[in-house]
Every structure is written in C-alpha cells, then in structure tokens.
Design a protein around this nucleic acid. Structure first.
Ligand code: FES
Ligand code: FES
Lengths: 157, 157
DNA sequence: CTATATTGGACTAAAATGGTCCTATATTCA
DNA sequence: TGAATATAGGACCATTTTAGTCCAATATAG
C-alpha cells in the first residue's frame, strides 16, 4: 500500500550518496559504481533529478552532479515531487478533470486531505534522515486538523 | 505521490455507502445505482472486499452485501489491505526477494519505516472519517520513534 | 422451476513502469 | 583546433499493472 516506485527508491539512494560527497562533483559513472545500479538507469535518474533542481550539473570533462542545497533542506517530499510528479492520491482529486461522482461522494476529498497531511509530514523527513534513519518513524495522527502555519519542514533542525 | 488506485477510491465510496445503510443487505445493483459506478465494476469490487472479510454476502433472491463490522472499526488501512494488498512501500523491502543493494544502502529501510508509520496512522482513520472528513487531517510527525504499544486504531472512539 | 444474486474466473485494452540506447551539446586540456 | 569526457534530451521497447467487461456455475427464496 502507498508504494513508491522503484526508481524513486533508487533516486533516494543516489541523493543520499551525493549528500555523503558534500559539494564535490560526481559523474554518473561514479554514482553508478557507488550505488551498484546500472549506469543507464543512473543517468536517467540524475537527469530527472537535475531537471527538478535538487541537484546541479556541470558538463564536460570533470563534470558531474552535486546537490544544489544542503542535505538537511532536501525532504522526502522533494524527492517524490522530482521523481513521481505531484500526482494526487486519488485520480479524481486532479484539478480540472472533474470527476463525475463529485456530487454524490465526499470520499475523494477525504483521501485528498489524508494525502495532504502525509505530504506535510514527508516534508519533515530530510535526506539526512533517509540516509541514517531512526529506529522507527513516529506515528502520524491523521485525525485532528492541520495547524495552518506548520513549518515547511526539512528545515526542522 | 503516494497515490492509491482508482479502484480503491471506488471501493471506499462503496463502503461508505454500505455504512450509511447500516446492516441492511444491498445488492450490487443497488450499490451501483447509488454510487454511480458501472455495475460490473461494482460487482468486481464487492467480490474483492467480501473476500477480505470487510463485508458479508448473502446469495440468492434478496441477497446482497453488508458491512461485517461496525463502520467505526473499519479503517482506511483495512481498505487498502483489501484492495491493494499488503504491498510494501518499496520493492526491495519485500520479505524474501533480497534486494542486491541491501549491503550498500540504508534507504530502503527508511522508506519502509516511514511506510509503517503511515500505515499505523491510517489505522486511525475510520470509515466514518472517510465518509464525512474533518476540515483537514493533522500532520504526521515522522521524525520521532513509534510508541511500541500504539493502539491498533480505528477503535479510537 | 424460476428469478435473483453472489462466486470465481477468464479476458481485453490501455496505461504505467523499468530499462536501454542514440544523437547533440558543452567543457577541458593537449 | 581536435580529442576526450560528460551531461541533455530524447526515442524506444518489453513487461507489468490497472481498469473494465463478461461468462458459466452456484446458492437462495418463493
Ligand atoms: S470518486 Fe471522484 S470525487 Fe469521489
Ligand atoms: S534499494 Fe533495496 S535495500 Fe536499498
């Protein structure tokens, strides 16, 4: 349930590796060797991640990729946005494509709200947490309203 | 991100409807008419949900389906289990199929732990909540450890 | 026996996913 | 300038998943 794609998992792996190399440039081949993922796949992922702005790239000899922000300020939500796009939790919660059930159902909005809540919580998980996760992550209380000014996270500490 | 399948959304809709009919039996046609989903799809979903034990069925004339538990004790996690199976958040967190990256990566386990945390929080969302959701669901703090004895939810109140 | 329902399964079309590969462009250095 | 090294931006294909429909069998009530 609520699975993320394998590519997103790989992408996380790559980002964690880049975080460990600080701001040094790493070529796709370097990364592939380090994380043990096929080079073409790594290339594809790095391109995607670069397009999203999470990493910066430099071309040419001695070129490569590096994080464009400190790892503390990159969140799990950022990674999902980069690799899976801002897909809504349900099909019908998509902006314009008005679901023909809207009238008779309040369910779509429930899932949508749960999704939003989860998203905010994922913004509180930084690349650092992903690299060396705590014994376990705390339980989310999804039953009381969101505080309006809740921090955009990952800048937590 | 973290999307659920459309069938799961439909399934929720169906369950919410059944909840509104209390313990009266509803045939698949009844349900289809009420929720405005094509009959064959409703039939398929009800079969799946019945197989999972969330609803009970009765055959023959005047047969149909009804919830097998009070709606307060059916959680969002139950619905996902029934309709999407107990899929892990990442591919490699699956039991036996040992990912060949295990050695070099702690990331899979991070996603896995986040998933577990989210799952527990979803167990706290009941069918009632799904039917008439609050203005918004609260943010999940995914950064501090899970309490060992956290309630299996939906039996919240 | 008939009408009504569920049960269990097969089946198809369409879309998403995972993965590879190719050409163009930028950069460095000899 | 020219060669070597990288990224940029695609196209491309195989496989799987998803969504949806349909059919034959079984159970129940009247
Ligand atoms: S199923 Fe689309 S709005 Fe509820
Ligand atoms: S990618 Fe499989 S264990 Fe990390």
């Amino acid at each position: 349930m609520l699975r993320i794609s394998r590519l997103t998992d790989y992408g996380t792996l790559i980002l964690v590796y880049l975080a460990s190399r600080q701001d040094r440039l790493c070529s796709a081949s370097d990364v592939a060797a380090a994380v043990h993922i096929a080079l073409p796949t790594v290339q594809k992922l790095l391109k995607l991640i670069a397009a999203s702005g999470l990493v910066q790239s430099e071309r040419g000899t001695d070129g490569g990729y590096c994080l464009s922000r400190p790892p503390e300020s990159i969140s799990a939500a950022d990674i999902l946005d980069a690799l899976e796009g801002p897909v809504a939790i349900t099909e019908c919660s998509i902006e314009d494509g008005h679901c023909h059930l809207e009238a008779s159902c309040g369910v779509g909005s429930a899932w949508q709200k749960i999704s939003k809540s989860m998203r905010i919580s994922l913004e509180n998980v930084s690349l650092i947490d992903l690299g060396s996760p705590p014994a376990s992550f705390p339980v989310i209380d999804v039953t009381t309203p969101v505080q309006p000014g809740s921090q955009t996270a990952a800048h937590r500490s």
